[in-house]
Nucleic acid binder design. Structure first.
Lengths: 217, 217, 217, 217
DNA sequence: AATGAATGAGACTTCATTCAT
DNA sequence: GATGAATGAAGTCTCATTCAT
């Protein structure tokens, strides 16, 4: 089956890069980057070692000098820190900031995050592979996502401590407050970058109102 | 690569039965059902026609008497009405129901829906294939999902009309009010049925509070 | 592999004929006719029972009511009298005919014969299958072609007896005198009906001169 | 359908050899050679990539490293110079040679040529595929055969210029003078090497007389 | 570290043929 | 006699992986 013509740009042109000799670490990282794009675009089974290699400017055999198998690439990909959704803080307290300012800053960060192709790729890959490799995905959730979630919650808690946000059921569970952003991300994937802009804007606006309402007082 | 041992039960050893002759309508539906399970479990590329056929109790060639190609199965799957998330109403107004009762009834339905393996399969498939076949997924969104969303919003509107729910920014956009359920669905997929129960319960509880807060007054 | 677009017209449109109930003999003959077209066009291996059946307005299974197997069709085809190159006489003596008249009458018949799509199909089929089934083709040569050759030679002999043609080495071997017609037939197959007209005309003219020369005196 | 037991020797059980690594040029040529044998023996559709590969001592996948598809092999086969009927001259003038000597030398060459299994294979393949791929065969005729024919005619012309052969309608069209050899080739294919010897001898004898007669004076 | 020819396994698809209706 | 669903075998092609260079 031919994939749609309109496949996302990120996945186009695995054009053969010039042959270069690079340090192992750099190569490994290049390969992981390339693999993320390919795996996310057509899934683990659909992706081919050949294309991943091409994307890095290697032959298949050359790639095998760095990774034992396609599977090993996938494993390392899920384990890699690059797979942490983000390291940038979302909820950031700043001296004398109002609730509105804090919420708007949060929205800026989180909607910028979901617009990031890499984040989209990671999300798609995880959902896709949750069927084929539930164990690995669960492991990712525990080892990569949970710590990330703790950091996010920690940020929120600090905002509460500083009095910028109220202490209530909603500030106690950051993920609930983020749920609309997940809706936006899913919409983005299902509808595509182009068609989703309006819808995303609406979701974001609703998200803003919601946060202001839930965090009011 | 072998998929994890723990792969969801839905995706297991199909049993081969003796040669049976069925009407095209029945067979086609059987095939679509089987295909949904397989595609969702390992993606379109990973799924094999052989297994889909086995699951239906047919040989590969038998399957090809009903569908022109693997691709055609996928196409029809996305187009089939069965792919409409659900036809049961979510927001249901009833004479003299309180806000709490209405919200609880909604939560019952929506969390029962996301617990449904078929719904999970559809969601996973759509996200997975949004990379490989964005056009087809977009089409699904337009032709299958949008009408569904309109029905849901219509239900909500009726509750507002009957005075059960207030008219405000949140009742005007049902998807916003559903966002936490999406979070629950994603959590379910990433963590697995077993491990996610507690988390789901927490999300649901937060969801409930959120709705009561947003719809209060 | 897709065959050329330009495939000979004779092989086009195996359009489904209306379903009719016919006597076995008629059906068998229809099937043989259809099989000749298909076999000749793409060879025994390339031809499909399905298409042969369609061409007759039957389903595959229906065809099997008349022939035990694809192979049996082929066998009967080679054995059928229809496979005799022609039953019309080539060399025909007539009272007081001149050499030129006799030769021209012969040329009319033989060049009309090689222009006949059925004759072309038979020739192509025999050459093609001489690799796959040499035994069967040899049998055809013995049992179908040789008698035919004898008849042709008999006709020639009669012309000699009547004094229309001289008795010499060339009148003793009709096939030698026909060789240029074979050249024309092969040219026709290799170049196609359209492109070969001029060439055929030239060959025929040469053929005429040759016969007049060899049979002169 | 099993082909006859008596299928020509050229088309028999290929032996598998250990893994060998050869240069692309060598392999490609090996593959083309093998393909000619297989295609000619059972036609393009009947031939299998597996057998062609085996004949070369490769696996299917190995073969696909050199050719994109079965079709591509066929294309290149028809285009390859090896497909030129022969490069050796047929009509060769030599100082003071008599007509008889010149004719006999010609007959030696041309009957040796049609006895060559490769020539037979090419002829059979072209006739067979003239149904399935008329365009390609026509192209072969134009680009490969025509130049060959010109060379042959040129040789004849030189014999005329040197006074060895007369200038007349028959020396002006070499193909006419060759027609009996074509008859011999076709007889060879239809009857088989063994059974045709006598017949071939007779045709050749007739051919000789014919040439001497037509070229006399 | 890198290549490219080679491999074995397996995927999709087609087809001659059967069988219950 | 005819049908259409079903089958088993086989064919083309792809792909992860190996190995000699």
């Amino acid at each position: 089956m031919e994939a749609d013509q309109t496949a996302s740009k990120a996945h186009q042109a695995p054009a053969r890069i010039k042959r270069t000799r690079l340090s192992p670490e750099v190569r490994r990282q290049q390969i992981l980057d390339a693999a993320l794009v390919e795996f996310s675009a057509i899934g683990f089974e659909g992706a081919t070692v050949e294309k991943i290699a091409q994307r890095v400017g290697l032959t298949k055999a050359g790639l095998y000098a760095h990774f034992k198998s396609k599977d090993a690439i996938f494993d390392e990909l899920l384990a890699s820190t690059m797979f942490s959704p983000t390291s940038a803080s979302h909820w950031q307290w700043s001296e004398g900031a109002s609730l509105e300012e804090t919420v708007d800053r949060y929205l800026d960060r989180v909607y910028s995050f979901i617009g990031n192709p890499k984040a989209q790729a990671i999300f798609r890959l995880l959902i896709s592979e949750s069927g084929r490799s539930p164990e690995r995905v669960r492991r990712w959730h525990e080892q990569i996502f949970q710590p990330h979630a703790l950091r996010r919650q920690g940020e929120l808690d600090e905002c509460v401590a500083k009095g910028v946000l109220p202490e209530n059921d909603f500030s106690r569970k950051f993920s609930l407050a983020s749920a609309p952003a997940l809706l936006a991300l899913v919409t983005l994937l299902l509808v595509g970058e182009q068609g989703a802009e309006d819808e995303i804007a609406k979701i974001r606006e609703g998200h803003r109102l919601m946060l202001l309402t839930l965090f009011s007082k």
